[in-house]
Design a protein around this nucleic acid. Structure first.
Lengths: 131, 131
DNA sequence: CGGTATCCACACCGATACTG
DNA sequence: CAGTATCGGTGTGGATACCG
């Protein structure tokens, strides 16, 4: 693999593809997307599934995803109100790379945790030598 | 796809797989990993390629990745000093899902930007109606 | 039910300066 | 060259309370 295989834009600080990586890294966004992979979910259900996000933060997340065209928000005119969030076609297409990443994570997290322990232990020993 | 297809752990706030998603979302980490996909790179080169990160932040990023066992740091005993960073086997295995995500990003970013413009425009119009 | 509004704490990132 | 040290702004997430 040559350096030129890396698109120039990804190294550009203004590169728009960075927005994707930021979305993925967003604390709740990728979680929401994966939950919505099962079909429409309403606000309160989403809150429960994603284990008690504050409404403000969940709203922020949903608005951002809606703005990006990854999800849709549909208000049903009824009492009590009901609002469903659903993946768009583009949102669904994101599901696949996201799932791959999740699978990678699931299979490597134990190793990563071991690596961290080893690293931290080595650091502790180094500190013991010269305090 | 059923709800049960989602692993319980990803919904758990203490789930370690979230650390992966955070790493990906980290402003520099995923970039560094992709740059290192071409082989070992030294500190200063990395700084240049990733378009002027401050040394502090780059160091933080590299330490975190090293701690996770995704990259190795090798110091060559010479003057001037030379330090190479390189992907571990695990780091390389992350390259593939990361690349998929990047491809997804590259092909969908234009649509996302359009969606944002449309959304913002709609918001502006709504504001004009009731100020 | 599905949000807003406010306030606050803190992690994160950058600028700058200095060191082995 | 490859960092470390210190300081500071800022944006992001959380707690709490209130509204249509």
């Amino acid at each position: 693999m040559d350096t030129k295989d890396l698109p120039a834009n990804i190294l550009d600080p203004n590169c728009p593809s960075r927005v994707i990586f930021q979305r993925i890294g967003d604390k709740w966004a990728s979680l929401v997307i994966q939950v919505l992979g099962n079909g429409p979910v309403r606000f309160s259900e989403l809150r429960k599934m994603v284990s008690v996000v504050t409404p403000k933060v969940l709203t922020q997340t949903l608005r951002a995803l809606e703005r990006d065209g990854l999800i849709t928000r549909t208000v049903h005119a009824q009492v009590p109100p009901r609002v469903d969030y659903e993946l768009t076609a583009m949102g669904e297409s994101l599901l696949q790379p996201l799932t791959m990443l999740r699978h990678w994570a699931e299979s490597h997290v134990p190793t990563i945790l071991e690596a961290r322990d080893a690293y931290d232990e080595a650091q502790d020993e180094a500190l013991l030598g010269s305090p």
